[in-house]
Amino acid sequence: MRTIIEAFLTYGFLMRALIAGVLVALCSSLLGVSLVLKRYSMIGDGLSHVAFGALTLSLALNISPLHISLPVVMIAAVLLLRISESSKIKGDAAVAIITSSSLAIGVISASITKGINIDVFNFMFGSILAMSKSDVYLSVALSLIVLTLYIVFHNKIFAVTFDENFAKASGINTNLQNTLIALLTAATIVVGMRIMGALLISSLIVFPALTSMRVCKSFRGVIITSAVVSVVCFIAGLFVSYGFSTPAGASVVASNLVIFLLFSLAGLIIKKV
C-alpha cells in the first residue's frame, strides 16, 4: 500500500490520472443523480458511444481528439435530450440507434487506420496512462463549473427533477436547466472517457446515484453520498489498476459494484429493522 502511494506521488502520469479522475468522478456522480432520477440514464450511455466514435474518427483523420469529440458529443447531448423529451419518437429506441451507429463508425474508422488497435482497446476500457496535462486542466475547469452550478442551483435542480411541471409553473426555466445538465454531462464524458473507457464511463454516472439511493431517503443525502461514494470508488479502483495492472475503467467499475452490493445489503437490513 505504501509503495502504491509513493508511486502516485512520484510519477506524473499517475498523479494526473488521480486528479483528473477524482474530479470527473465527482462531476459525474452529481450529474448522475438528476439523470438517473429523470430516467435519462440512457443519455449517458449514448453519449459515451458517440464520444468513442468521434475519438477514433479524429485519430483516423489525424485531428486533435478533443477538438472533435467535445463539440460532437455536446451536440449529441442536446439531440438525445430532445429525443427523450419528445413523446413522438420512441426515445429509448432512438438512443439505441445513435449508440450502435456511433460504435460502428468508430470501429470502422479504427480498422481502416493502421496501428491504432492498441488505442482502441484503451478507448473502450480505459487507460491509466491516458491523461495529459490539458486533460487535467479541462477536468479542473469542468468540475469547478459543475460544483458551482450544483451548489448555487441545488434547490432548483431538486424542483425540476422532482416535478418539472410544478417547477415550470413556479417560473423556473426547465429547458435551460435540462440542456445545461446534458451539456455538462457531455463534457464530463469526453474528459472521463480516456481514463474510464467508452464502454464503462456511463457507469460512473449511474452507479453512485443508484448506490446512494439504496440507503438515503432525502435528495440532499443522495447527492452527498453519491459524491463521496464516487470519489472513494475511483481512488480504490485506480490503486487496484496500478497494483494489479488491470484496466483503469474496469477496476473503478468493479469497486463501484462492490460498494453497490454492500449498500443494497445495508438497505435491506435497514428496511427489516
Binding site: F158, A159, F166, M213, S218, F219
Partner: peptide, 30 residues
C-alpha cells in the same frame, strides 16, 4: 407565478428519494 399549482403525481415521484420537508420547501421557489 403567485398561483399554487398541484399537478397530478408522476411515475418518477413514486420512488424518488426526497424528504417531505424538501418537497414542501420547493413550493417557495416562485
Amino acid at each position: 407565478r403567485e398561483v399554487g399549482y398541484m399537478p397530478q403525481q408522476t411515475t418518477i415521484q413514486k420512488d424518488f428519494p426526497a424528504s417531505v420537508m424538501e418537497v414542501v420547501l420547493s413550493g417557495c421557489l416562485n
